[in-house]
Design a protein around this nucleic acid. Sequence first.
DNA 1: CGTCTAATTGAAGCATCTCAACATGCGTGG
DNA 2: CCACGCATGTTGAGATGCTTCAATTAGACG
Lengths: 255, 255
Amino acid sequence: MVAAKSPQTAAPNPTAPLLRKLEALGPLSSAEKDAIAGLPMTLRRYAEKGVVVRQGDAPDAVYLLVDGCVFRFAVVATGKRQIMALHVPGALLNLQNLFLKELDHNIEALIPTTIAIIPKEAIRGLLKGQPQNAMRLWHQTFIDAAIFRKWLVGVGRRSAYARIAHLTCEFFARMTAAGLSRGMTCDFPLTQGELGDALGLSTVHINRTIKQLDRDGLLLVRANLLTIYDWPRLQVVADFDPAYLELVEPTVARQ
Amino acid sequence: MVAAKSPQTAAPNPTAPLLRKLEALGPLSSAEKDAIAGLPMTLRRYAEKGVVVRQGDAPDAVYLLVDGCVFRFAVVATGKRQIMALHVPGALLNLQNLFLKELDHNIEALIPTTIAIIPKEAIRGLLKGQPQNAMRLWHQTFIDAAIFRKWLVGVGRRSAYARIAHLTCEFFARMTAAGLSRGMTCDFPLTQGELGDALGLSTVHINRTIKQLDRDGLLLVRANLLTIYDWPRLQVVADFDPAYLELVEPTVARQ
DNA sequence: CGTCTAATTGAAGCATCTCAACATGCGTGG
DNA sequence: CCACGCATGTTGAGATGCTTCAATTAGACG
C-alpha cells in the first residue's frame, strides 16, 4: 500500500509503526523501545484477500501489522458478513490470544500486507520484564475498544449517509496518524461491498450514498483512493470527534 | 435487584462478585484474593436512572459494580441514543480511566444499584504488586471486547427478531454466571425503549417483535422478568454460542 | 481481446420507522 | 382508599430508508 512511497530504506525495523503508535501515548525510554524493536519475529507476506487468522484458529503467536491493511469479520447464520474492525500498520492483531486459545472471528488482508509474527512467549516476557510497556499495550486495547464503540453507535443509530461519512473520517485520521496520507488524500482499500459489510448496509445502497456524498462536495472514493473535499463539513455531517482515537496530531486540523 | 434473594449476610465483601468472575478465568491464590478483597473502597448507592458517570467526566476512581445493573450509552447528533453495554455485578466499569482522563460516553444505573468506588492509586498498586491480577483484569477486558463485537454483529447484520433473541440469550447467560437467575427466569431491567436503544430499533418494533417471540413459544418479558420458554430453540434462532463469554458453567446446559 | 471483479443503475418489495392514539400499571398525594 | 399523573406498553396506519433482484457498464490484468 505504501510500497510506492516507502522504498526498502524507509522500513528499518518492522516494529517502527508500533513504536510510532505507542509514542503517541507517551514517551518511551530507549530501553523500552529496544525491548520492542528486539522482539524475535518472522515476517510473513499476505496477498490481497489473504487469510491471516480463521475463526477457530488458535495462533501460538501474536501478529503485528507492519504494512498493508487487514480487517476482522464474522459471518452470521444467514450468511451475511459483518466487518468489525479495520487495522492500519502498527496494530497488534490478536493480543487476546495471550489469554484466549481460539479467535472467535476471522482476520484477512485487504491488500498485499506484511505481518510480523511474534511468539507468544516473547510477548509474555516483554510484559513481565517491562510493566510500562505492558501498560501501554493495555492502553492501546482500550483505544481499540473505543473505536468499536463508535462503530456500534454508528451502525445502531446513524443514517447510511452519516455512517459512511464517519467511517471515512476515522479512516483518514488513522491513516494520517500512521503517516500514510498525502494532503487530503489517502489510500482506501475497501470496495463498496466491504464498506457495506463494515457499516451494515447493502452494496447498492453504499454506491448510491457515496455518490451523494460526492455530489454534496464532501468526499470522493475512486480507484482505491479517498479524497476529502470538505473536511470541516464532513466532520459535522459525520458527527465525528477524533478525541477517542487519542492521536498525537490534532488530526490534520489544517484546511 | 437481588435484595430479596440475598439478605445482608450474603454479601460479606463487595468484591465477591468480582472474585467470582475472576475465578471463572482461572484459580486465584489466597494472597491474590486478599489483595482484591482488601482494596480500599467506598460504597455508593444509585437510584434507578441514577447517573454514574457523565460523558466528559474524569473520574479519579475505578467503579466496581457490586449489586444492581448499569448500562453505557452515547447520544448522537440527531438525539438518538445507543446503549453500548449492559453490566451485571462484578464488572469494573471504567478501568480505561487508568489511562484516559475522560470517559467518552455515559454510564447510568438501570435499577437501584450499589457501586464500590476504588481510588485509581489503589488499583495501580494492585496491578504493580500483583502482575497476575493485572493479567486477569486485562483478560476480562478482552472478554468485554468480545461482547462488544457480538453486539456490533447483531446490530449490523441480524434481523430484529434474532437481535432480541441474542440479547436475551446473552443476558440470561451472564445473569446465570453471576448467580442471579432462578431456573429459566431472571430479572430483566430493560424497558422496551431501552431494549430498542441497545439494539438499534424503535420501541414500537421491539414491542411487536417481542410479542412474536412470545407467540412463538421462545420467551416472555413481563414486569421486569425474563422467562425463557425454549432455551435450545432460542439459541438457534439467536445464532447464539456462549463461548465468547468464557463462563465457567456450560451455561445452564439444562433446560 | 477476453475475463473477472467492482461499480452502477432501475424497479419492486419489505423491514422497520414515525406518528398518533389508547391502555395499563404503579406511586403519590389527598 | 381513591384519584390523579406519569412512565411504560400496545396497537393501527401510513411513510421510507434500505434491500433484493437483475441487468448493464466500467476497469484492471494477462
